[in-house]
C-alpha cells in the first residue's frame, strides 16, 4: 500500500501525471470505490486489496477525466490489456497514460504501450484455471439446458445498462440500443428484448473483451453475462487467433478485412 501511495505521490508532485485513478475505501469493509487522486493528500487514501476488481481503465475515456490532464491508472493484467486494446482501437495515444501495475504488493510503473506489452508477455495469457473450468462446465451441458439457463438468467435483466457502463470497451458515444430509427434492439425488458440486447452486446465485444468481469460485477441482478463474453473470446481465439489486449498491433477479428479471408461470403 505504501509503495503505491509513494509512487502516486511522486508522479503527482513531479508533474508526470495530473491524476492517479485508483481505489479507496468504500461504504462497507468489503467495498471499494474508484478514487481520483490529484494531490499528495489525495494519494494517502489510495488502497489496494482483494476486492479491488473494477476495471478503472473505463474512466480514461471520460471527458471529465481527460480534462484533468495526463492520468495514471492502477490495476492488474486485465486493466493493462484494456490499455492495449484502446491503443489498437485508436482511443488513447501512446505516452498519454501511465499504468501502475500491481502484483503481490509490488508496483510497476509502465509509461508506454511497449512497456505494457512486455510486462504482459511475461505473464500467463488466456483464461485462469477457474474460469476455464467454469466455461467447460457450461459447455458440457446440453444445448437445451444452456438455453434454459440463459433464458431464465436473462429474463431477470432490468435493462439498466450497468454492464455497458462498467465495461471499458463499451465506449460507443451512442449505443445501438439507443437508436430507434430504425429500432434495432427491442426496448422492453422482456425475455426477447433482453436476449437480443445481451447477445448484441456480447457479439460486439467478441475478440475485444479482455475478461475483466466488470460487467457481471456491475449487474444488480447478478447475471453472469461475462460468461457470454468469455465463450466468444475463446471462439475468436480459435477462429481468428485474436486474443485481445496483448499487443498494440493486434487486429481484432470483427473489423479486419483480408482478401484471403477463409470465409467466401466476405471475399
Amino acid at each position: 500500500m505504501e509503495l503505491l501511495r509513494d509512487k502516486a505521490k511522486s508522479l503527482l508532485t513531479g508533474g508526470a501525471v495530473q491524476v492517479v485513478i485508483g481505489y479507496a475505501a468504500g461504504s462497507a469493509t468489503d467495498r471499494f470505490r474508484p478514487h481520483f487522486a490529484r494531490s499528495a493528500d489525495d494519494a494517502d487514501r489510495l488502497i489496494f486489496g482483494e476486492g479491488c476488481r473494477q476495471n478503472l481503465a473505463v474512466y480514461l475515456l471520460k471527458p471529465e477525466v481527460r480534462a484533468m490532464g495526463k492520468a495514471a491508472v492502477v490495476g492488474g493484467p486485465t486493466t493493462l490489456r484494456t490499455l492495449l486494446q484502446y491503443a489498437v482501437e485508436n482511443q488513447i495515444a501512446d505516452g498519454l497514460v501511465v499504468a501502475l501495475a500491481l502484483e503481490d504488493g509490488r508496483v510497476e510503473e509502465l509509461t508506454s504501450f511497449a512497456a505494457v506489452e512486455e510486462y504482459l508477455a511475461q505473464r500467463p495469457h488466456g483464461l485462469s484455471d477457474g474460469d476455464r473450468a467454469e466455461l467447460e462446465q457450461h459447455a458440457a451441458r446440453s444445448q437445451k439446458d444452456r438455453w434454459a439457463y440463459w433464458s431464465a438468467e436473462l429474463a431477470r435483466c432490468i435493462r439498466c445498462y450497468a454492464c455497458r457502463a462498467a465495461c471499458p470497451l463499451c465506449y460507443c458515444e451512442q449505443c445501438i440500443t439507443e437508436n430507434n430509427q430504425p429500432q434495432w434492439v427491442p426496448v422492453a425488458s422482456d425475455a426477447f428484448g433482453n436476449l437480443e440486447w445481451n447477445v448484441v452486446r456480447a457479439m460486439h465485444l467478441a475478440g475485444r473483451c479482455v475478461n475483466c468481469g466488470s460487467c457481471a460485477a456491475a449487474c444488480p441482478e447478478n447475471i453472469r453475462i461475462d460468461l457470454l463474453n468469455q465463450v466468444l473470446a475463446q471462439e475468436a481465439m480459435t477462429q481468428f487467433g485474436a486474443e485481445a489486449g496483448y499487443s498494440v498491433r493486434k487486429e481484432y477479428a470483427l473489423s479486419v478485412f483480408k482478401p484471403d479471408d477463409k470465409e467466401t461470403f466476405i471475399r
Partner: peptide, 17 residues
C-alpha cells in the same frame, strides 16, 4: 456536483432498483 459524480458511470442501476 462534479466531485461527487466523478466516479458515476451513468447507468440506470440506482433508478431501476
Amino acid at each position: 456536483w462534479k466531485e461527487q459524480s466523478l466516479r458515476c458511470l451513468g447507468c440506470g442501476a440506482c433508478a431501476f432498483v
